[in-house]
Simulated scan of single mutants.
Amino acid sequence: MTGRHRVPGGVLPVSPALLLALPMVLLAAGCGPRPGTPDVLASRRPSAMAGSAPSLSPHVSMTLVPTPEPTPSSPPPRPKVLVVGLDGVRYDRVLATKAVHFRQLMRAGTFTTGYLDVLEKVHSSSGPGWSTVLTGVTPDKHGVYNNSFVGRQFTKYPDFLTRLETIRPSLHTAAVTAWRYLLDTGAVGALVDWHATGQLKPYEVGAKDAVIVDRMTDLIRASDVDVAFMHLEVTDAVAHRAGVLGPDYRGAIETVDGYLGRLFGAVRARPAFASESWTIIVTTDHGHKDEGGHGGVTPHERMIFLLAAGPGIPQGVRRQGARQVDVAATVFTQLGIPLPESLDGKSLSTIRPIE
């Protein structure tokens, strides 16, 4: 049997096992939000992504280690990729905090910093930033120049999850975002197996992120997900309200750093972790002025970074030249799937450090 719940655009079948494993706050007939918890919409295509969650605290941190070489009698490890998008993060402010999990990932992989190439009409804003991360192509292709998403070309240049579903439908994909415009505009396509997003209503800053992280850690621990994208917004919200130089922004960075630790713990808690090969990618969409705010062309507004660890990605390397288009290319390469010709990026596993 399958349960069903309403999502924008129709009714989708939902496995009861998934609903039990992932206690989502559903907006459906007869279902309402838990007291004190932001509303979240969820949907899922019929391809199963169910399993049983192990008994482990989500706060256990992950020690990233190289995947062991398979023995002749064992199959190669199954590749998995998690992409974490942190909205409006100035990497120089991250480095001014302890950020223990962020630094753990830096030691395990490659940390690339740089600046948005803000072309004519393109704003240093979330719309073009996340569209570039998700599609792996530049704004002149995907057509998003600001947060209106007017002129978007996601049918021609879909997000990397949708491309993977088309190329290899057996892959289990997921997207969880606090900014529902990524779903409403098609920046994350309908082919994605499972997705959740916040509702359009005011919440205490960071409240939606807490639920989003709960859902993603549940999903990672309890399902057969292969490729996932998660987007959090608290850092951007705090920067707009209080700037990036004070304790509020530092606290927001430390909060999302703790979320990274929970995600690492969820990965390690997977029953099949020993036979899997995980790549973790963390990135941002834009920077902020010291006093808060973005959209312009100043260096602080255009600051971006890519941080990735996984098989084949150089360890403990720091380099310049970060490009958002490299995220999608890295996802494909880490999964062992040839890059579509229309992608504009290169995998971080193939880009050598700049001496």
Rank of each mutant, 00 (worst) to 15 (best):
R4G: 11
R4T: 15
S15P: 09
A17V: 10
L20E: 15
V25E: 12
G30I: 07
C31E: 11
P35V: 10
P38D: 08
V40T: 08
L41V: 05
A42K: 03
S43N: 13
P46G: 08
S61K: 11
S61N: 07
P79K: 00
K80L: 09
L86F: 13
L86I: 14
D92N: 13
L95R: 12
R103V: 06
G109R: 05
D117G: 05
L119M: 12
H123L: 07
S131M: 11
T132P: 14
V133W: 03
T135Q: 08
T135M: 03
G136L: 07
P139K: 06
G143R: 00
S148F: 02
F149I: 04
V150R: 13
L161I: 03
L164F: 09
S170W: 03
W179I: 08
L182V: 09
A190V: 08
T197R: 14
Y203K: 04
E204V: 12
V213N: 11
I220N: 07
V238S: 12
A239N: 09
Y249V: 08
G261Q: 04
L263D: 01
A269V: 00
I281A: 13
T283L: 01
T284I: 05
T284Q: 04
D290Y: 09
D290Q: 10
L306Y: 04
A309G: 13
G310K: 10
P311T: 06
G321I: 09
R323I: 09
Q324R: 12
V331E: 01
F332I: 00
G336D: 06
P338S: 00
P340I: 00
E341G: 06
K346P: 05
S347F: 00
S349L: 11
I354G: 11
